[in-house]
Simulated assay, not measured.
Amino acid sequence: MQVFLITFAVFLLVVLGMAIGYIVKKKSISGSCGGLGSIGIEKECDCPEPCDNRKKKMAAEEARRKMLEENRIL
């Protein structure tokens, strides 16, 4: 039980330290390597055309964006 409490305390200190560092720097959290965009890949897969589920999501997103634009104009 003592090992568990010590381990828990160490993890708690690490999380607290990261939180304080985030608050002090006021910088958004980001990846260290830049992701796939840094090596020239624009999307997660290199498929020439998105799958049906992705097309549905893109269409819904576009419809939502248009609806929001129309509401702003009115």
Rank of each mutant, 00 (worst) to 15 (best):
N53R: 15
E61W: 10
R72M: 13
M1D: 09
T7A: 15
N53M: 12
M58G: 04
E62V: 04
S30I: 11
I23N: 10
V14C: 06
R72N: 13
A9T: 07
I20D: 00
Q2V: 13
Y22P: 00
F4L: 15
I23S: 05
G31L: 03
G17N: 01
K26T: 03
G34Y: 00
G37V: 01
I29R: 03
S38R: 07
C51A: 04
C33E: 09
G31D: 07
A63T: 05
P50T: 04
E49G: 05
M18I: 11
I6P: 00
V10D: 00
G31Q: 03
R64E: 14
K55M: 10
P50L: 00
K43G: 14
F11M: 11
A19H: 01
P48I: 03
L36R: 06
C47M: 11
T7S: 13
S38C: 03
K55N: 03
R72K: 14
L12A: 13
S38T: 11
V10S: 02
I39E: 04
N53I: 15
E62Q: 13
E42I: 05
V3R: 11
I20A: 03
K43D: 13
K56S: 13
L13E: 03
R64D: 14
K26L: 06
V24P: 00
L36Q: 06
A9N: 01
S30G: 09
V3T: 12
E70T: 11
E42T: 07
I6M: 03
G34F: 01
M1G: 11
K25V: 06
D52Y: 14
G35D: 00
D46V: 12
E61Q: 12
S28W: 11
E49V: 08
C33D: 13
P50F: 01
E69S: 11
D52K: 12
G21K: 04
A63P: 01
E69M: 15
K43H: 13
C33R: 15
M18N: 14
V14A: 09
K27R: 04
L12I: 08
I6N: 02
V14H: 04
I6S: 06
V10E: 00
K66P: 04
R65E: 14
L16I: 09
T7F: 10
F4T: 08
K27F: 09
N53A: 14
L13D: 02
P50W: 01
M67C: 13
V10W: 00
R64G: 13
K26H: 05
I23K: 07
G21M: 04
L5V: 08
L16G: 09
E61V: 02
L16R: 08
Q2Y: 12
E70I: 05
K27N: 06
I20V: 12
L5Y: 09
C47P: 02
S28P: 14
E49P: 02
E61C: 07
K57H: 10
S30H: 11
C45R: 12
R72V: 12
D52P: 03
Q2M: 10
K57N: 14
